[in-house]
Every structure is written in structure tokens, then in C-alpha cells.
Design a binder for these strands. Structure first.
Lengths: 149, 149
DNA sequence: TTGACTACCATAAATTCCCATGCTATCCCA
DNA sequence: TGGGATAGCATGGGAATTTATGGTAGTCAA
């Protein structure tokens, strides 16, 4: 489970330390890390190879000519299997750096099954937005309901 | 698992480097590489010999006398088992070069169980198309469902 | 004997690997 | 309880390896 938020530096080689707790999480379950473009936000999403494999297997179940299959294949094209160096760092591929407007700082945000990597400004925006919605609409009822089921 | 996208050069002998990660993927599972005409797009599809067998089996499920089965068999007839040179390059057969309108550049696009080889312009078109669908229809249902589970 | 194809060598650029440093939080003992 | 030792984490830099790509020589067939 990926939880908590942390701010790490991206160096000139596009290297960044994955938060130790995330790493331990992957190592414990003997998983490789996959990074890909979020389909919803302007950020990178990180998850396990097992989870990605599940998506790949799911493509075969769909009508091969459908839009959903098409989009999922495109998503694979923008996904990367990432290796750690001995210190727990990874290199973020150029494509993803650009997509998420990353330069020298990254915000890691654990969201359970996966985690997000934001640029500081984009993270700030999303955070503000969530606070605003919370104030106007109150806590998310649907979410609570789903959890209890 | 074939993931990520990369742009490689095709030289005058129609040689092109298969992206290292794709090669490793094939070597790890001790598979040979098969290239064939995509059934859907104007591009080459690359996959393992095992996966190719799965395609062939899928054709057998169809009515053997149907037009679909006929067309699929004709397409399959243009598939090639490809050998690497010592540097990880392959020679793309003329038939496939023409079919995919390839000349001096190739875009390799991993889509999980297999990968596509596009001409740069054709790739661009497909990518644009995916962005458009994503904007209009939102992420694939499968993706959303999986996330909530 | 020419042309196509294959196998191998060479090189520059990119990427990976590993060592070193500094910081911070934790621990332990006086 | 304070302060130094320790361990783990984040980060910087450089050496070693890999990758992509250009080229050449050898081989086989027409």
C-alpha cells in the first residue's frame, strides 16, 4: 500500500529517489515498478508490474477494435518498466518528464494501490482544488459507501 | 511485457535496432521474434512465436469458410520469423516496409503482449486520435473499474 | 562477376552502475 | 536529559557498460 506524501529532488540526469516506504513496499512483494502517464491528470502514475499485467491481460478480453482497447494499448506505449539504482533512485523517462512538466522537483503522493508524481505547482493546484470541493460539497459519500461494502 | 515507445533509424539496408527492452523481453522468455502486417492498422506488428500461435488458433475459431477467416489467413501469410544481428538489429522485409510506408525512421510502440512499428507520420495520427478519444469519452471503463476495486 | 545478403568490427552517445558525501532521525549511555 | 555515535536516506559525481548506428569484409546465388 502506497501512502503519504514526500518532496524529492530531480537531478540533471532526471534521477530521483523513490521514497523509502514506497520502495520497501515494492521489494517486500518482489514487484517491479511501472511508471506511466495518468489518464486523468497531468502527472505520472506509479504502480506494480503485476497490476500492469492485469491491464494487459484485460485488453485481450475486450473487442480488439473498440476504443477502450485502443486507449489501453496507447497507455502501454506510454508506460515504462523502471529499475532502481543501488541507492533507490530511478531515472524518469523524457516523455514522462515532459508530460508532467517536471524539472527539478517531484512530489510523491501515495494513493493506496498506486502513487502519483506531480510537479510542485501542479500538486499545489490539485490540493487547492480538493480543499475547495471539500468545503463546498462536504466529504465524499460515495467513497465511504464503497469502502463499507 | 512490451512497454514504452522509441524512435529508431532505418538505414539503407532496411536495418533497424529493436529497442533493448524489447530484446531483453524476448531473450528472457527464449522466444523468437515474428513480424507481420497488422490486421487493424497500417503498421507492422511484432510479437513472440508463442503469441503468434494464439492468433492462429483464434482464426480457427471462426467459420473456416467465412470471408473473415480468408482475409486473416491472407494477412498471416505475410509474417516473418526475424533474426537479430550481433548488435540487436533486424532487417525489415520489403513487403512490410511497403505495407507500413516505412522509409528512414520507425516508431516502436509497446502495447503489452506485442508491439507496433509505425512510420512517424502514421504514428502521429494514431496518437492524436487516442488523445481525441480520451478527451471525448474519458478513460476506458475497465481502467476505472479496476481502480475502484 | 555482379548484386544481395549476412556476419562482424568500430564509434559516439546515452545509460547504468557504484562510490562518496551530507543530512536527519534514532539510539544509547553517561 | 543532553550530546555524541549510528544507521538509513537523499543526493552528487564519475567510471564503466550498453545502445544505436555507420561501415566493411566475406559468402552465396544468379
Amino acid at each position: 500500500m502506497f501512502l503519504s506524501t514526500s518532496h524529492n529532488k530531480i537531478d540533471l540526469k532526471c534521477r530521483v529517489s523513490i521514497p523509502a516506504s514506497f520502495r520497501v513496499n515494492l521489494e517486500k512483494s518482489n514487484e517491479n515498478l511501472i511508471l506511466f502517464k495518468s489518464l486523468q491528470f497531468k502527472c505520472i502514475e506509479g504502480t506494480t508490474s503485476t497490476r500492469m499485467q492485469a491491464y494487459i491481460d484485460a485488453i485481450d478480453e475486450l473487442d480488439a477494435l473498440s476504443d477502450d482497447a485502443f486507449l489501453l494499448r496507447m497507455m502501454m506505449a506510454d508506460s515504462f518498466e523502471i529499475k532502481f539504482d543501488i541507492n533507490g533512485r530511478v531515472v524518469i523517462p523524457d516523455t514522462l518528464m515532459n508530460f508532467a512538466s517536471l524539472s527539478d522537483k517531484a512530489v510523491f503522493m501515495g494513493i493506496g494501490q498506486s502513487f502519483y508524481i506531480w510537479s510542485p505547482t501542479e500538486y499545489e493546484n490539485q490540493y487547492m482544488k480538493s480543499q475547495k470541493i471539500l468545503k463546498e460539497k462536504g466529504p465524499p459519500k460515495l467513497f465511504i459507501k464503497k469502502k463499507i461494502e
